[in-house]
Design a protein around this nucleic acid. Structure first.
Length: 360
DNA sequence: ATGATTTGACCATT
DNA sequence: AATGGTCAAATCAT
């Protein structure tokens, strides 16, 4: 069959997709707030922010369902039941929403990772290309089975290099974006190009293979594998291989801090500002005073056409982080295209992941 | 037209 | 032989 969908349908579909995302987002936020309450009990501002997020998510969904797509954030009717009225007149409402989403996501990352770090070290540094074996319902534990790959001197076919080379392999987990396309792994600041997808034994979801977009131009060897967890499809397990060399020529650090590091720093900066609403602060700092950190505006030189991180860390850790996150999240948001399949098929949990019914 | 994604085939490793 | 990782042609998106 020709799977051609008319533009109108696609528009509508995308709109519904966003609405559903908003609703799911709200549900999830509520659940997370519940489970994270003990951790942030001493941070009323944070709790308030979380509440706002939940409310706003549902409000946005409702407004959109009623066709008021223009009222993205606070409805013009003034039905804003919470006290949060720090108006920031210079910020576009649309931008506000985007930023809110980013905050939400950031919070999610922080909280999820803080929680995870309490039980397990979050970042699993497996030096060899470890193979993860998961036991269906092990409670989300990964069993890394380091295997001896030291030989790597075998066929040496001209086509395929030894893929189990002992490059650095870092595995992290990240929550799926709840805004936009939840199929797409969260942005990590680099641009990736997908080069493969594979069904994995004993996994419900396929594994996706990405390489750095600049591999061709700059011989950047960085790769990543992305796998949705069986027992928590909202969490990605991402394994990075190789370091980026694509932006060596820039002022940017050659290697970004890992997601876990970023989150760690962020959580620190938040806990260190008990009263001054951590989340809101970084945003207003970054947006209102956006002159300082130019996150993605740069002359098109070298890999910069798509490379994004030219921040100078020394300028101010917080700004760096904010810019990174905002940038990353803007990106993931904009690249959403078709997540309906996931959203809908999540109810058909028994089946394996199928992007869409396959043409016969 | 160009670049990204999809997907079946190929290959290395176990 | 089974499995996972990569290639590359076809397809899609911009």
């Amino acid at each position: 069959m020709t799977s051609q969908i008319s533009r109108g349908q696609q528009k509508h579909r995308e709109n519904m997709e966003e609405i559903i995302s908003l609703i799911l987002n709200g549900c999830r936020l509520a659940g997370e707030l519940e489970s994270n309450l003990p951790n942030i009990a001493n941070q009323p501002e944070m709790i308030a922010s979380a509440c706002d997020e939940i409310i706003n998510s549902f409000l946005s969904a409702r407004e959109r369902l009623r066709g008021q797509t223009s009222a993205l954030f606070y409805p013009a009717t003034g039905q804003m039941p919470f006290h949060e009225q720090h108006q920031q007149p210079q910020i576009d409402p649309n931008l506000q929403e985007l930023l809110r989403s980013s905050v939400t996501q950031a919070m999610d990352m922080i909280q999820t990772q803080i929680l995870a770090a309490q039980r397990n070290p979050f970042e699993i540094g497996d030096q060899r290309g470890g193979r993860e074996l998961r036991t269906g319902t092990g409670g989300g534990e990964i069993l890394h089975q380091p295997m001896d790959v030291s030989d790597s001197s075998r066929g040496s076919s001209s086509q395929q290099r030894n893929r189990r080379s002992s490059e650095n392999a870092r595995t992290v987990r990240q929550p799926a974006p709840r805004i936009g396309n939840t199929e797409i792994p969260p942005e990590d600041g680099y641009t990736w190009r997908k080069y493969g997808q594979k069904e994995i034994l004993n996994s419900r979801y396929p594994r996706s293979y990405y390489r750095c977009t600049h591999q061709k131009l700059y011989q950047c060897p960085a790769k990543k594998r992305v796998q949705r967890l069986d027992d928590d499809p909202y969490t990605f397990e991402i394994t990075y291989h190789g370091d980026h060399t694509c932006h060596m020529s820039l002022t940017a650090p050659s290697v970004l801090p890992s997601a876990a590091e970023i989150t760690q720093e962020m959580s620190q900066s938040i806990t260190m500002q008990p009263s001054s609403t951590g989340l809101g602060r970084w945003l207003s700092m970054d947006v209102a005073g956006g002159s300082g950190s130019s996150s993605s505006s740069m002359p098109g030189a070298g890999p910069s056409s798509t490379a994004r991180y030219d921040h100078q860390r020394e300028a101010g850790g917080d700004q760096y982080l904010v810019a990174s996150l905002a940038d990353a999240m803007f990106n993931s948001g904009s690249s959403s295209s078709n997540s309906m399949e996931f959203l809908f098929s999540s109810s058909l949990e028994d089946q394996k992941w199928q992007p869409e019914d396959k043409k016969d």
